[in-house]
Simulated scan of single mutants.
Amino acid sequence: MPRRALVNKRPYLVLSVIAALAFYYLRASNLPEMYLVPIKGSAVGFLALYCWMRHSSKSAHLLASALVVAAIGDMAIEFDLILGGAAFFVAHVIMIVMLLRHRRPPLEGRDSLVFIVLLLGTPFVAYFLPYDDRLSWPVTLYALALGGMAAGAWASDFPRIRVGAGAILFVVSDLLIFAGLGPLSGTQISEYLVWPIYYLGMFLLTVGVVTTLRKRDPELRVVKGGAE
């Protein structure tokens, strides 16, 4: 069984982790950007492949599509922050559509407070982070989609310890990017922390969604190329 799991399930995840680690360490080397950029994109790209191959539901395919767009954003952002942000905006919208298919009953108490903080607090904080006023509104617009995605993950019926936590880590990584345009500019904090926090968030979110879908709808597991 462990060998079967390794052959059928883990290769895509293992390749994803290898790509993520390779990008993190190789970017400090003299490796040309033409090699680094595809390595970076393949980290989340392999997560998309894992998602697509492990479950045939519409939700899994929506998430896989969002991950493909996010992988494009990972590469585009190396050349242009606005272009990369636009790709991630689209990825967030797709994720929101997927998450709305899995809503919990109406939230109450602390859960509703967390939902509001993620939904409204994310763009509110993002607005004040860049020092350049010209970036404040574009960043806020993007952060509305980011916060909506995180709030949707929190309000979904997916396990919060993975999906909710993964979405929150995504928010933290992006806020660090915006802080690099403001209070953290001139430091290396964003450079060292953004990628591992972002990738861990994407990994948790993807595995959490796929694992849950496979438990709920085992008949939709893909038979060839990534399942039993």
Rank of each mutant, 00 (worst) to 15 (best):
R4H: 12
R4K: 13
R4L: 12
V7Y: 11
N8A: 11
Y12D: 01
Y12K: 04
V14H: 10
V14I: 14
L15G: 13
S16D: 09
V17Q: 04
I18K: 03
L21R: 13
A22P: 04
A22C: 14
Y24A: 11
Y24D: 14
R27A: 00
A28V: 13
A28W: 11
S29D: 10
N30W: 04
L31I: 14
E33L: 15
P38Y: 04
P38L: 05
I39R: 06
A43N: 14
A43M: 15
V44E: 02
F46Y: 13
F46M: 14
Y50C: 09
Y50I: 03
Y50W: 12
C51A: 15
M53T: 13
M53R: 15
R54K: 12
H55Q: 14
K58Q: 02
A60S: 15
H61W: 06
L63S: 12
L63N: 08
A66L: 09
L67R: 03
V68M: 07
V68I: 15
A70D: 02
G73C: 02
I77G: 04
F79P: 05
L81H: 06
L83T: 14
G84T: 10
F88M: 05
H92A: 02
H92T: 02
V93S: 01
I96W: 04
V97S: 03
L100S: 10
R103C: 04
P105M: 05
P106E: 09
L107P: 09
R110A: 10
V114A: 13
V117P: 02
F124G: 00
V125W: 00
V125G: 00
V125T: 00
P130E: 08
T140Y: 12
T140V: 12
L141A: 11
L144C: 13
A145V: 11
L146R: 02
G148N: 05
G152N: 05
A153M: 08
A153S: 08
W154H: 09
S156K: 06
F158V: 11
R160E: 10
A165Y: 00
A167Y: 04
L175T: 03
L176V: 13
I177K: 00
F178M: 07
F178I: 05
F178G: 02
A179L: 08
A179P: 01
A179T: 10
G180Y: 09
L181F: 08
S185N: 12
G186R: 06
Q188G: 07
Q188V: 07
I189V: 11
E191W: 00
V194W: 00
Y199R: 06
Y199W: 15
G201A: 04
M202P: 01
V207C: 03
V207M: 01
G208A: 11
T212P: 00
T212D: 13
P218N: 06
E219T: 14
R221A: 07
R221H: 05
E228C: 04
